[in-house]
């Protein structure tokens, strides 16, 4: 693994491999239970609602909305504060943590529920990170 970023580099585990293989291909993958229909994240090889092992991958649209966030002023490797640490809600339902980029990192530009779309950032040969940017022009 050859990091191209100073950011924290995840270690891929067997249960999460499909997710990270997906982002390398520009795909945001979550999982769906074929027994009860529950769509979920983070990855695991059984449904966290009904424990069924009858699951499949779902390719997400990449559309999301901003559920909540902070604007961190703390030093973090690979980041230049201030920067947003956000929880986004995917169109498909599950939430995940990310950064909202491509807009000023200010409360007036980061509006809750605003529409977002996934973009990808390479951290290493193995790890491509899903980030989000606003899909409407921010005033």
């Amino acid at each position: 693994m050859h990091p191209t970023s100073d950011k924290f580099i995840p270690f891929i585990t067997p249960e999460t491999r499909h997710f990270w293989e997906g982002t390398k291909l520009g795909e945001l993958r979550i999982q769906k239970c074929d027994s009860c229909g529950h769509k979920y994240f983070p990855p695991r090889p059984f449904c966290p609602k009904c424990s069924s092992k009858d699951i499949s991958l779902v390719l997400c649209s990449g559309e999301a909305k901003l559920y909540s966030y902070v604007i961190s002023h703390l030093p973090a490797p690979g980041f230049k504060p201030p920067f947003s640490i956000a929880v986004v809600e995917l169109l498909e339902g599950p939430r995940l943590m990310s950064n909202v980029i491509g807009c000023p990192q200010t409360p007036s530009s980061l509006l809750l529920d605003m529409p977002l779309a996934v973009v990808y950032e390479k951290l290493s040969d193995e790890i491509i990170l899903p980030l989000f940017k606003p899909t409407e022009k921010i005033v």
């Binding site: 995840p10 640490i85 943590m97």
Partner: peptide, 21 residues
């Protein structure tokens, strides 16, 4: 490590606070 730290989380001040907005 996989789903939080790559986004610049460093501890409670930038994690425990996220829900409040």
């Amino acid at each position: 490590g996989q789903f939080e730290a790559p986004f610049g989380t460093m501890g409670p001040p930038d994690l425990l606070t996220i829900p409040f907005l």
